[in-house]
Design a protein around this nucleic acid. Structure first.
Lengths: 272, 272
DNA sequence: TGCGGCGTTTCCGTCAGGCGGAAACCGGTC
DNA sequence: GACCGGTTTCCGCCTGACGGAAACGCCGCA
């Protein structure tokens, strides 16, 4: 397809890069927004242009419009970052907002009882997204933060979500090779499948040093109503000094998960 | 250049209406997003069209593109709402994210000591935006939630932010009439100005039943470094059974605010 | 002080693609 | 089976998006 520019159709824009929603005007706006991920919270105009593959002048225009509206803001040093206005709008996202509202008090109790990291996550395709997290001064530092994505098989909470995911999703994940984060990480599809079965039976799942040599996670499913579909996972992560610590956490964790589930059931029934 | 349109500038388009970034393609995208505020977290296509003033077919196209990208999602009942993808991007907003990261552990401690609502807010023009909030089962229900805007003069935290805002902002707020939420609300500009002076001297501010008959708030400024510019306000809200309760809170609140300020100072110095 | 490099901003002619009216479509309801 | 509100599709017109290029501003270096 030499230069020629045939029919003007050859646009798909492989960019080699990242997202690419195509050559539509709205697409450009979204591409620019997508350039701001966790590793690039603030970038100069030309960085954005580079990362999106858009010409500088186009980027300039789009960024200008986004900024005028408040979706982007500029630091004194000239770098652009996501603006408060966009954050406000997005913070109304029901999938996180309702969950958050309902879950926080329970997470709070859990934190107070344990003083460990308490986390809440949802499944998105074959990945998990952390939606909320409570951590105090006394909790372990984690590599995961609110708004972060993670391959679903890699975390304890993820495996709980996976266990309750549709069959095709499970298959897709089991078919793909699992990354071994530590020597303890379960990567064999057979063992993993057995683990998923066990999770469905036992509810609470203890993930012992699967993601990092020094942490253990306990996770439980959150449903919409006591028996409804699983909509999130609740988890506690703490330092691995013998996973014995997990024992005492099962009960309170499960109780909290039930609490959230019940309240979610009540809430969605009324809302609807 | 058709009509000549001097300088080609006459576009601003007052529209009379609501938001309006105007007829540019990107503008439409943003208008659609802006249709999703706290009162309208989920809407049908035609509601969106109505609220934005865009023709249905146009709305349909824009919504479609947003959905394809993940900025919007659709419920089974057909209503649209903000999608997880947008939430992810926006949750990286530095103004809230850094603040949140730093402040949460301190807020946590504060919550544990008091079991009351602990809140964090920033100023945006003459309004305040709640950025984070901790509440357990034992705290009072509040009308403010994370991601909510509020006139800055109306809340205790807002007045603290106002006291440290640039002079022109203060003037603007003082010039506008204050809404009286309760019989106790201070609305007189003179008294208010005196209050601001006092806030600057005493740091901690007690706002007694200013917003609701049944709540008292204590608030303190959060700076960037111990002496840097005020970047947020930290507050505790509790039920008004005699504001005497505020007494014991001053110390821990101030200590937490200092802790956050110090850490923010450290953090921004290193990052830069 | 002048030069070259880098990022940003402005300009403007071209033409792709945004635009939206209208008509088809799709359940409900009376 | 006619009606009605909402959604989706179609398509021709023409506007405003597009991006190359040039001007600008800022720094560091000679």
């Amino acid at each position: 397809m030499g230069r020629a520019r045939p029919g003007g159709t050859a646009r798909v824009c492989e960019t080699g890069g990242v997202s690419t929603t195509r050559s539509t005007a709205a697409g450009k706006v979204l591409e620019v927004l997508a350039a701001f991920d966790r590793e690039h919270p603030a970038q100069t105009l030309s960085e954005i242009a580079q990362r999106t593959g858009l010409p500088v002048s186009t980027t300039h225009r789009v960024v200008g419009e986004l900024a005028a509206w408040g979706a982007l803001e500029r630091r004194e040093d000239g770098a652009w970052h996501v603006g408060l206005r966009l954050w406000e709008i997005a913070s109304g996202c029901p999938r996180t907002q309702i969950l958050r509202d309902v879950a926080l008090p329970f997470m709070q109790d859990l934190y107070e009882a344990t003083h460990e990291n308490v986390q809440l996550a949802v499944r998105e395709g074959t990945e998990l997204v952390f939606v909320e997290r409570i951590a105090g001064h006394r909790s372990v530092e984690l590599l995961t933060g609110v708004g972060t994505r993670f391959p679903i098989g890699s975390t304890g909470m993820g495996r709980v979500l996976l266990a309750h995911a549709p069959a095709d999703i499970q298959q897709e994940v089991l078919d793909a090779p699992q990354r071994a984060w530590t020597p303890h990480t379960v990567t064999d599809p057979g063992t993993l499948r057995a683990q998923l079965d066990r999770i469905r039976r036992e509810q609470v799942f203890v993930s012992d040093r699967q993601l990092s040599e020094s942490t253990v996670a306990v996770a439980a499913p959150v449903r919409i109503g006591r028996t409804g579909p699983v909509s999130a996972a609740l988890g506690i992560v703490f330092t691995a000094r013998g996973a014995g610590g997990a024992r005492g956490l099962r009960e309170p964790l499960l109780r909290a998960a039930y609490g959230i589930s019940d309240e979610l059931g009540r809430r969605t029934r009324t809302t609807d």
